[in-house]
Structures are given as structure tokens and as C-alpha cells.
Amino acid sequence: MIRREAGYLVASMALMVPWVAAAQPAPVPSEAAPAKPSSPATGVAIEPGGDSVDQAADAPPGATWEDGAPTEATKAEPPAESVAASASVVVVTAPANVGPSATEEEAPTMPTLEHLGTYQKHTWVGTGVRTSYVNDPGLDPFAETDALVRLDVGVGRTLFGYRQVSLAAVLDYAVGGRSATARGDATTIMAHQITVAPELRFHVWPRLFVFARPAVGAEYFRASIEESSMNEELLQRAWAVAYDLSAGAAVQLYGKVSSDARIPRLWLVADGGYGWTGRVDLEMEANDDSDAPARSVPLDLGDLTLRGPQFQIAARLSF
């Protein structure tokens, strides 16, 4: 059974490999990088901090960076005499005949920690594999190990951003189950969890952010056992409150480096934490329309709470 769990995890890791392979290592703009091209037509002064983020987002797009690599146009260095810079203000004057015209191509807005733009404010959908370690004896009749692997689907949107910090809202759905035999009787358990959570994020780097997410929601269980003496399937369906507290990091794997365009970006997200669900009595009963003996007493398999540490690896598509 351990092999099966290992298989899940290796498979989930393997899913990530193409994305990792697709992601080209690229230089990330920094303070030492070439000056950001700004609108050559207007020569607007842009302050790298404070309110300049919003201003930059509103600026018309300029030259683009493919995967973070500057295009030929942006590689052309402006004349030294036309660039004036200070610690807080950068004034750029576009050379008369260098680079694309304003009508052909607009200069990209390079993300910085103070100017994250759509790196920070975006909507996303994601999917991943969540593995929980449920050290609860209630799971034992239904699983040969303590691992519960679930498919996770989430959607979220940034609500608020300030410098490197942002807050997003997340709606998450996870489904997974296990099957086994309990002394020869086939058993199955499926768990569906839906949670909402605020996601507090901190960008360490434009393409890397860490986050913490306290989630609350509901968990729906469906447990069954093919009980031999009754020759019937016994079921238990129940709802329980669910809480998750997790923290992790997301790194961009694919997508244009631009803070101002709503372009798709692919992120690899890994997080870990702890999950709780309320306690559910495993009182297994036959369906009303079954052929179970009259007045069958529910089979008491104790109680179950899906409580334990958990890991998740997910892919997130933001736009």
C-alpha cells in the first residue's frame, strides 16, 4: 500500500516536470538591471515606490520581455546623456530614432517588489494533489495506510495589494478517498471538502511569493462496507465542519514577465499545514430499499475525524 501512496506522489511530482522543464531560467529585473523602458513619448517620471505601482499599471504597454529576456529593442542602450537617474526618480528620455515607435510597440512594465502589478493582482484557477496524514483509527477500516490523497481544485482572486503584501480570497474543493478490506469485507470512503479562505501573500520576489491560508468549510463523508453477514452494503453519509491551516510558496513557471498585462501565468504551488474535521460517527446503515434484515442495527465502526498534517502540490494558472 505504501507503494500505491508513493505512486500517487511520484505521479503528482511527474505532472510538475513538464512545467518545470518549460520554465526557462531567466534573469529577473533588479536594481542593477537595465533601466526599465518607459513611455518614450511622454517621458513620464516613475517613482519605483509608493503610488507608482498604480501609475505603472495604467501606463501603455511598451516593449515586451519574453520569459524575462529582453527583446532586441530593449537591449539597445539609450545614450548615456539622455538618461538621468537619481535614487528616487528615474527620468528617461527616449532617443529620437531608437526603438519601436509608440504606435508599433509600447514598453513593458517590468515587475519589481514595489511594482508587482498583475503578478500580485490577478485571478487564478488551480488544481493539485493533496496528501493528508490521518492518524485516526477511524480511517483504519477504510485504508491500509494513513495517507488520504485528494484532488484539489481552487479558484481565487486578489482583493487587495500593498507593496509586497496582498490578500486574496480562495474557494477550494478537494475530493478523494480510499478503499480497503476490513476483515474480508470491502470498504470505501470518499471525502469531499469545500472551503473558503483568505490567502495572505508576501512576494519575496516577483515570481515567488509565500502565503498563509486559514480555511474554513465543510466536509462530506461517504463511507461504505460490504458486510457479509447481512450481504448488504452499509453506508454512512455525514457532514462535518472542516478547518485547514496551511502555508506555502508559489513560484512562477511560465508566463511573460510583465507587471501590467493580464497575461496567463503558470505557477507551481507547494504548501503544507494541518487539517481538522469534526468528528463523525461511523454508524453504518443499510439503505432503506435494501434487502437487509428487518430492524438491522447500524454497524458501529467507531468515529472518524480527518485530522492531521497535509501537503499539497498544485499548479495555478493566473490571469
Binding site: 505504501i2 496524514y133 485504508a143 495517507a147
Partner: peptide
Amino acid sequence: CAGVLALGCGDRSSAWDAD
């Protein structure tokens, strides 16, 4: 990977496997 695998290694009581 090792950490994730370790999490999945908890076995149940062998009694459940005893027919």
C-alpha cells in the same frame, strides 16, 4: 518527496487484514 512519503507510511492495525 521523502517527507511526503513518510507521511503516508502509517499502517493500520494488522487486525483489519485478518480474515
